[in-house]
């Protein structure tokens, strides 16, 4: 038996290498190469030619510029970090809650699932790009719909007037307004996470719930004893995705700075690369720390 185990472990490891081989190949072919080139670009001045580009090595010039001359760069990193810190708990709890609702049986569930899927479509690729470029809609809708920082849903003036009628203190009204604006942003950022949780909920064995029922657990207890522990592996994935999404969202200030730097000057592409690499190193470190902490709480059903 012991011998069988040993052989099995070796066989599994062999298959493991075989299964993950595609990624290793892809990483070497399609990531390392552009990664190193982009790294070299950030250490050089770039000049585009007909067959590609030429590099002129300048050392850390671009890094020094963004860290010590550009007064905004560090501030933007800090802002992005604080924003992520705020986003992650809200997105995770909202999407978990929504997934649990969408997993229940009720009339119109298919319609509700279609609607909750829309943010996945609306936050990807060209749709997002065009939304930002769509100047006229913004002007037309501006008075009522589009607040600063994102498409707010409620008419600011009308909502404010409503709160003022209730004679609430104005600082409290501002807080409520921010919360309402935030709700729309959080909902739009949760599409992916909701679907991941939904898939997780569908895969929890019914036998576990039956066991909990047999013990006389209430709905609340069922959640904490069965649902939540079974979902912890996916909570980790969703936290990873939310952090990355929040840091690198196409419409975040930092990413815009990186993209805009390209058009700043002829050296823009080098500066942009430098900004990007420093930023991603920072994000990677944040991610590593978070994964380390969260992994301790993850339960694998084995």
């Amino acid at each position: 038996m012991k011998r069988f185990r040993m052989n099995l472990e070796r066989q599994k490891a062999l298959y493991g290498i075989f299964f993950t081989m595609p990624f290793v190949v892809g990483f070497v072919l399609f990531f390392v190469n552009p990664f190193i080139k982009s790294m070299l670009i950030s250490l050089s001045d770039i000049r585009f030619t007909q067959t590609g580009y030429e590099l002129n090595y300048v050392g850390l010039k671009h890094y020094e510029f963004m860290l010590f001359v550009d007064t905004q760069y560090i501030r933007k990193i800090v802002d992005a970090f604080l924003q992520t810190l705020k986003d992650v708990p809200m997105v995770i709890s909202f999407s978990l809650f929504s997934a649990i609702i969408l997993n229940q049986k009720f009339r119109g569930r298919t319609l509700a699932r279609v609607i909750f899927f829309l943010p996945v479509i609306l936050s990807a690729g060209i749709v997002l790009r065009m939304e930002r470029a769509d100047f006229v809609t913004q002007v037309l809708m501006n008075s009522e719909l589009v607040g600063a920082g994102g498409p707010a849903v409620f008419s600011d003036a009308a909502v404010r007037a409503f709160f003022e009628q209730l004679s609430l203190p104005s600082s409290f009204i501002s807080f409520l307004m921010a919360a309402v604006d935030n709700v729309a942003v959080i909902i739009r950022a949760s599409g992916i996470q909701i679907l991941v949780f939904l898939a997780g909920l569908q895969s929890i064995p019914a036998s576990l719930y039956e066991a909990a029922d047999a013990e006389g657990a209430t709905g609340w207890e069922r959640f904490w004893v069965v649902t939540f522990p079974m979902l912890t592996p996916l909570i980790l994935v969703n936290i990873i995705f939310t952090i990355i999404d929040s840091f690198t969202a196409g419409n975040s200030e930092m990413m815009n700075t990186i993209y805009d730097a390209v058009s700043l000057s002829s050296m823009g592409y080098s500066l942009s690369s430098a900004m990007a690499w420093f930023y991603f190193a920072f994000v990677a470190i944040v991610l590593a720390v978070v994964i380390k902490i969260v992994s301790k709480g993850v339960l694998y059903h084995q």
């Binding site: 990483f27 399609f30 990531f31 190469n33 552009p34 990664f35 080139k37 982009s38 670009i41 580009y53 990873i240 990355i244 840091f247 690198t248 196409g250 990413m255 990186i258 993209y259 592409y269 690369s273 990007a276 991603f280 994000v283 990677a284 991610l287």
Partner: peptide, 13 residues
Amino acid sequence: VLVVPPQVTIIPQ
């Protein structure tokens, strides 16, 4: 790999 958005490596790619 996920941390690095494709926009950044697109030209070498």
